[in-house]
Structures are given as structure tokens and as C-alpha cells.
């Protein structure tokens, strides 16, 4: 018989400062948190930063987690906030005051982008406002139910529905075939 401790036990151990238990939680959730960040932010480097920040903040705030929602929902909430914070920060490359010019030569990233057949879809997702993008990503890419998205975003299920419908509409209107 193989026994696997569920998140609740690991969280309890981690709350008692057990870093090994927390490491197991990070392993279990890294994929969904990184994927959320990748779809929200559109590039791997920002996604990695946001995912790391999410787990660090979760560790620091662990004592406040009361298991009223699933641990994954709580993490999604932190991760979404980290992504929204990243999106609200001015990007250094486009900051007119930094005086730095963007490198016009195509680097490895842009070569990958050229070959990406999802490119126009990703561009359209990137054009959504952060408030529209979050419910869209949580629904279409993470497969969350309206109620759970509501818990993540602190909105009623009805408000989630409204934002999600708006986001879908903007997405199809913005998608250039």
C-alpha cells in the first residue's frame, strides 16, 4: 500500500516550520503556479520570478492559512496577485526614463516566438486588461470553476462570469487570424 500525505498534512507540518514538508508542497504545485504565471505574463522569465515570489510569500504567510479554502486555491490567489503586481510595474525595457534602448536584433526568445503557432493568440491574450486576463486564464487554462475563480479573485461567481464573458469577447475581437 502506498500512502501519500495530502496537502492538509503537509501544510500542517509546514506551518510548524517544516521546510521539507513545504518543499513537497512546492513540488506538487509548481506546475500549475508556473503555468498560470506564464499565461498571465506571457514570458518565461517573468513567469519564473512570479512563481518563486508566490511560494516565498506563501511560506511567509503560511500561519495565516486557515484551510477554509483548498491550499491550491490559496496559492492561486497569491500567484494571481503576484502576476497583477508584475503587470502593474512599468517594464524596464519600455521605460522612457531609463534611457535604455531595446536590442533590435532577434535573440533566442524572438526566434522561438516566430515559430510559435500560438503567437497571435498569445498576443491577443496579452492585449486583455489584467482584470480580464486573470479570470480567462484561470478558467480556460487552469480549468477552475466559477466559484473557485471567485475565491481566487475575491469576487462573486456572478462577477466572475461577467468579467470572463467580457474577456472572451475581447479575445475573439482582438485575435488576428
Amino acid at each position: 500500500m502506498v500512502l501519500v500525505a495530502d496537502d492538509v498534512h503537509l501544510v500542517r507540518a509546514a506551518q510548524a516550520s517544516d521546510a521539507v514538508a513545504f518543499e513537497e508542497l512546492v513540488r506538487r504545485h509548481e506546475l500549475r503556479i508556473y503555468r498560470l504565471a506564464l499565461r498571465m505574463l506571457g514570458n518565461e522569465s517573468d513567469a519564473q520570478d512570479a512563481a518563486q515570489e508566490t511560494f516565498l510569500q506563501a511560506w511567509r504567510a503560511l500561519a495565516s492559512f486557515r484551510a477554509e479554502s483548498a491550499f491550491s486555491t490559496w496559492l492561486y490567489r497569491i500567484a494571481t496577485n503576484c502576476c497583477l503586481a508584475t503587470l502593474s510595474r512599468p517594464r524596464p525595457d519600455t521605460d522612457p526614463l531609463s534611457g535604455r534602448e531595446m536590442d533590435p536584433r532577434p535573440g533566442p526568445d524572438s526566434i522561438t516566438v516566430e515559430r510559435d503557432r500560438f503567437r497571435s493568440l498569445k498576443v491577443a491574450i496579452g492585449r486583455l486588461t489584467p482584470e480580464q486576463r486573470a479570470p480567462l486564464v484561470l478558467r480556460e487554462f487552469e480549468g477552475l470553476a466559477y466559484e473557485e475563480i471567485g475565491e481566487v479573485l475575491g469576487l462573486s461567481a456572478g462577477a466572475v462570469k461577467g468579467r470572463l464573458h467580457r474577456a472572451r469577447l475581447e479575445l475573439v475581437k482582438g485575435a488576428v487570424p
Binding site: 521546510a19 513545504f22 518543499e23 512546492v26 513540488r27 509548481e30 506546475l31 508556473y34 503555468r35 518565461e44 519564473q48 512563481a51 518563486q52 511560494f55 516565498l56 511560506w59
Partner: peptide
């Protein structure tokens, strides 16, 4: 996910 994610966090 990037292979160093867990290690960096820990």
C-alpha cells in the same frame, strides 16, 4: 516549469 524553481525557492 524551470528545473531550478523548487531549489531556488527552498
Amino acid at each position: 516549469p524551470p528545473s531550478a524553481l523548487v531549489a531556488t525557492v527552498m
